[in-house]
Amino acid sequence: MLKLIIRRLPALFFVLFCVITLTFFLVRLAPGGPFDRERKIPPAIEAQLLAKYQLDGPLWSQFTGYLADVVRGDLRLSTKYRNRSVNEILAQTLPVTFALGGLAFLLATAGGVWLGTFAAVRRDTAADRLAMGVALLGLSIPMFVVGPILILLFGLWLKWLPVGGWGSPAQLILPAITLAVPFAAVISRLMRTSLLEVLNQDFIRTAKAKGLPERTVVYKHALRVAILPVVTYLGPLAAHLLTGSIVVETVFNIPGAGGFFVNSILNRDGFLLGGVVIVYCGLLIVFNLLVDASYALLDRRIRVDA
């Protein structure tokens, strides 16, 4: 497993380098600068501002300077939120996004695996069709519709849960459910297909022939193998959750990194935008590596040396 991680490292650094480069130049390509206002600021002041934020000089040296700073772990200053560094903003907002994303991650995997298994063991019954209908519905309703519906239902009418904001654990429940719904749907479909396939295999017939109870066969023997496609989906899932949390944070007024990301685009706040993207991609790369490694542990037939 350690060997796998070491072998992958150079490629991962290369991917991260591409991400940094792409983001840097795409941000600079966008028309308009971070200090464009309705009223034109005097050229001398603008030059001072550009110098302060190290946005002066040839583009190439700006880029190498930025790259050196990022390698040192300094994501520079935000051009919009004056005198606050990107590191500082991320340190405040990322824990919020991770709490939301982490809970949604658990809900999506647990809910999806449960629903998929529920449907697969009841293959072609009304319960199966109902479960898969629910999953299809979950795939077809966007998060920003699920969110307001949950707010209306549990926040405004039943008044069980707070409608938004951040601070108490109760405020985490509705957003996390909203974020988890579409991915629980995807996982349940993966799970059902995979479990049905596994249940047709010889080793399951052997286990049944031995006289093992149905529950043991499904939950001890089949599930362990059938869960592999779900494990491969965990990497993309993490990426989807980070993207999805942008919308969920907007709907529920949560002060996470997603809202800052959207604002950084609107405000031409290049370093903040770059910071969010670099940190997101870095984390996802590490997470994917761990998933690949755990995959090798889960399924002994697969050797991830290649």
């Binding site: 795409l26 390509l29 959207v262 993207v277 991609c281 997470f287």
Partner: peptide, 25 residues
């Protein structure tokens, strides 16, 4: 595989932001 695990929509946002004005010009 790598593209699967990158937050693609986030890059789309940056892309649109970078090219929309230029295309219109």
């Amino acid at each position: 595989d790598i593209m699967y695990s990158v937050p693609r929509l986030i890059f789309i946002l940056i892309f649109i932001n970078a090219f929309d004005g230029h295309v219109r010009d």
